[in-house]
Every structure is written in structure tokens, then in C-alpha cells.
Design a binder for these strands. Structure first.
Lengths: 259, 259
DNA sequence: TCAAAAGTGTTGGAAATACACCCATGT
DNA sequence: ACATGGGTGTATTTCCAACACTTTTGA
């Protein structure tokens, strides 16, 4: 399922000559589990600060492709829903001291840390991704931790990564009508409450469950199943599924899917 | 009014050591004149291809600030409405041959063209801007032309600049409710038809003038004036103005201004 | 037995849409 | 006189928000 091909030391020893200078990529990866939205964060053991899974761009690589590659290297997942949402370009957003600390804690061999490319300024291209929670294998390995964090309990992160998450949520909120967030985050079969919780989390407010259900069903993209589940809540709830064909077709049109 | 501090030779001879590598900025600058939307383009005399006004980012400069600086250097305008909308990061978007041609047509002194920074790959941060048409002084100067182009008559542009314009319009269209496009593009006093034409151009379809007016007035952000003008159309038309105070206040809220 | 979650409506008002008629003006 | 664009109003429909009652089931 998961292909872990990420290694901290490799990462920081990558020859600068292969990388596009000044440009980095950070991913806000959303998952849904047990009724809450979660964000995937990683942490270098020797550093201790959680951060967004990110990386750099090869000179002969599209930035979008770099984002897919980074996502795959951390989650093992291919073909996830991934969307660029903002460039973070403040000149003082990279905390040089913080990066220096990281470098000093790794044996970099012959390289002189004081001129390492990692100490230069980077702009960061922000991407948000929706992945199926259960397919991501979290781990505590050699140099790195990878963990889901509840969206309301994100710790203080490296650099401006808290702001990047904030901006991602604002962007998703303002474009929710064109973003297949439920389709990408939920399993094949789901209860309407699960879908509603996703929206409530993004908007940070309660939604009327009856009006919400009516609106969702009125799109015609969701099928009611002859099945119920007691997994969530007290009473057993009807399950629904997305009509994949209609969904794929609607995605290509200019019309909003939901709002 | 206008401060022309842009010079092609200076531009391409800027020391690479002062610039952030790999990152450029391109601006889609909109203006409204005589009932049509226009986009400001520039052209290097020795090159012959129109392009979006763009530039690079200094190492100690925020990307947003670079965009403001570039806009001011071309239009002389300060404090315009400027918004980042997308990063263009395909690895083959920079046409190296085209750039080589440009370099060869300038006397670059002692620098060796084959290793000039201008021949490297750049990602480009796209910004759109709304400016008051009449305040921009177009010119045909030493090495450069600066001209307004009708939005439906944009020529084949340098690199992927046609696609950048296309993406800018799609972005504006999808976020029109939160973009004060009329406020920024129209003069103090304007006819409702002028405002409507802006929306019709962005949406590329006719809107019902009566319903449009009702909707715009229902926001409470537009005042009807006791004045008419025959400038547009056959019959003299009522003039309107934006209620600046309410507008500034509404901008800060999360609610949509128009849609 | 009662609180919590789910199933199933109704209803009033707001907003969007479609459309009609008259007026002023330049050709 | 008529085509063009502007001013004003109405009818219809669609959408959205607010709200009520019942059922199931775990604690």
C-alpha cells in the first residue's frame, strides 16, 4: 500500500544543482476519520517541530508534478486530489536560524553548513490534498514522524505553516461549490452526517441537518442506498454513495457541484 | 502622474546576485475605456512579441511588494488593486530560445549570454490588477511599447502569457462576488450599463439590464446620483457612484459584495 | 425513561428570472 | 417613423432558512 521512499538525510543532501532554487512546495493534506477532519503533519526527530509535508522542485519537473511526488513519498498514495491554492512569498517567511539548527543536527559530511542551499530564502507553493485516511500508513521511523492531527488541535508549526493551513481552509471555504471535498474524503459508503461534519468543519459553524441533506440530494450526484449502519451515532443511519459517473461528468462542467 | 523608471537594458543587466532565482512575476492589468475591458501589454522593440508586464523579485523583497513595484514602474500608479491568483510552474513554460533571441539583440557588454540568468527556468506568479484607465500613460519609447489591448483582441503573446490571461479571467469569474471589480475599474461617476458591461465581459454573456440593476442596487453599496450623462448610448443615462465608506467596510467582512 | 441522533415534512420570505410597457433621441 | 437604449414595474418560480413531530436506541 505505502511506499516510503523518503529519507531526511537524502533530502537535505540532494545536490543543489538538481533543484530549482528558491522554490519549495508545502502540502496541506486532509483526511477524515471518526467524525473529524485531520491534517497530516511530519516532524524531524532531531528538530522537534511539526511541519507540513513539503519538499523541493527538480529543475526539469513541473511544480504540480513535484507536489504529486512529495505527496506520494509521504503517503504512498497516487492519484489523489491535489490543488494549488496560494504562493507564500514574504521575504522573511523562512526562518534561517531555525533551518540552521536543523542542519547543525545532521552530519552533512564535507559540505559547509554556512553556505548550504537550505539556508537561502524560499517561496513556497501551497497545495491542499484530500486523501482517504485509511490508506495512509502513519509511522515513527528513523529520522521522522508522520501523524494525523485533529484540525482543531494543530500545534505551533515550523515557519509560517500555521498560516498556510489557515489560508488553505479559507480557500476551500470560498470555493466549496467547486471542490469535491466529500467525494474525495469519504469512503465509498457514508452517512449524511459525515458529509455534513466536513462542511461544518470547513465553515466552522453548525448547519441544519435537514436543509443540508435536501441540498446535497438535490444535486443528483448522491445516491441513497438500501443499507444502514450504526457506526456513527445512536440510531442506525442510512448510507449514501456518490454517483461516480455523474460526478466525473459534472466536474468537467463549469457549474458548481455544491455550495 | 506617471513615473517611468523602467528601462530594458537596466532590466536585463540587473545583477543576478540581487535577484531571487527562478521566480518571476507577471501582471494582468485591466482597464475600462469606452465601453470595453482592456488589458495592458508591453513589447520590447527589438523583439516584437507582446507580453504581460512582468519582472523579478529582489532577494530581500516580498513577492507581493515586487508585484506592486513592477506595476508602478510600468503604469506610474500606486495603491492599485492587485491580487495574486496563480503560480505557473511548468518546467517547459519558459521558452529558452525565445529568451536567447532577446538577449542576442541587446548589447550586454562583457556578460556571456550563454550563461545569463535570463536563460534559466522561471516559475511565474500571476497577479491581476484593476487600474483607472485614464491615469495610465501609454507610450512608445526607446526600447519599449506600452499599449492597451481590447480583451477580445489579444495577440499571440510571449511564452504562456495567453494562458495566464485566460486563468486570470476564470479566477475573477469564479470569485466575482468578492472582487470589487466595478469599484476599481470605473470612474467616480458611471452609468449602470458600464458596470454591466464589465460583468458581461467577464462572464462572456449578456445579462438582463433590469435584473442586473436591481441586484446591484440591492447591495446598498451604490448610490443613484441626481445627474445624467449622454456619453453612453442614445438616451441620457442616470449616473451612479459607489458608497466608498460602506464599500470599505464591506470589503473587510467575509460576506460577498456582489455575485 | 430520557437524551441524543435520525427520518420526514411544511411553510414563509427572499432572491432570481422572465417579461412588458413607455420614454427620449439620433438617423 | 423607427431603431436603439434607458427608466420603471410585475408575475412567477426557485431557493433557502426556520421550524415540528416522530422513531430508534444506548445509557
Amino acid at each position: 500500500m505505502k511506499t516510503k521512499d523518503f529519507d531526511t538525510r537524502d533530502f537535505l543532501q540532494t545536490g543543489v544543482e538538481d533543484l530549482l532554487p528558491s522554490v519549495s512546495v508545502d502540502c496541506v493534506i486532509f483526511g477524515f476519520h471518526e467524525g473529524t477532519l485531520k491534517i497530516l503533519l511530519n516532524k524531524f526527530k532531531f528538530h522537534g517541530t511539526w511541519m507540513l509535508p513539503g519538499g523541493f522542485v527538480y529543475k526539469k519537473e513541473d511544480v504540480d508534478d513535484a507536489a504529486y511526488r512529495i505527496l506520494k513519498s509521504r503517503t504512498g498514495l497516487d492519484k489523489v486530489y491535489l490543488e494549488q491554492f496560494h504562493l507564500f512569498g514574504n521575504h522573511n517567511r523562512t526562518n534561517i536560524q531555525e533551518n540552521e539548527k536543523i542542519l547543525n543536527q545532521i552530519d552533512m559530511g564535507s559540505e559547509k553548513p554556512e553556505h548550504h542551499w537550505f539556508l537561502n530564502r524560499f517561496v513556497s507553493v501551497g497545495y491542499y490534498a484530500f486523501v482517504e485516511y485509511s490508506k495512509v500508513e502513519v509511522y515513527t521511523a528513523d529520522g521522522e514522524d508522520l501523524r494525523w492531527h485533529h484540525i482543531d488541535e494543530i500545534p505551533q508549526l515550523y515557519s509560517d505553516h500555521n498560516k498556510i493551513i489557515e489560508k488553505a481552509i479559507l480557500t476551500i471555504r470560498s470555493q466549496i461549490g467547486n471542490i469535491p471535498i466529500g467525494y474525495e474524503l469519504l469512503p465509498e459508503k457514508f452517512a449524511m452526517t459525515e458529509l455534513r461534519i466536513i462542511y461544518e468543519t470547513i465553515f466552522n459553524k453548525k448547519l441544519d441537518r435537514r436543509n443540508f441533506q435536501r441540498k446535497m440530494l438535490s444535486t443528483g450526484l448522491i445516491n441513497k442506498l438500501d443499507e444502514t449502519s450504526k457506526k456513527w451515532g445512536i440510531k442506525s443511519a442510512t448510507l449514501f454513495s456518490f454517483n461516480k459517473e455523474k460526478y466525473e461528468h459534472a466536474k468537467d462542467s463549469e457549474n458548481a457541484l455544491f455550495d
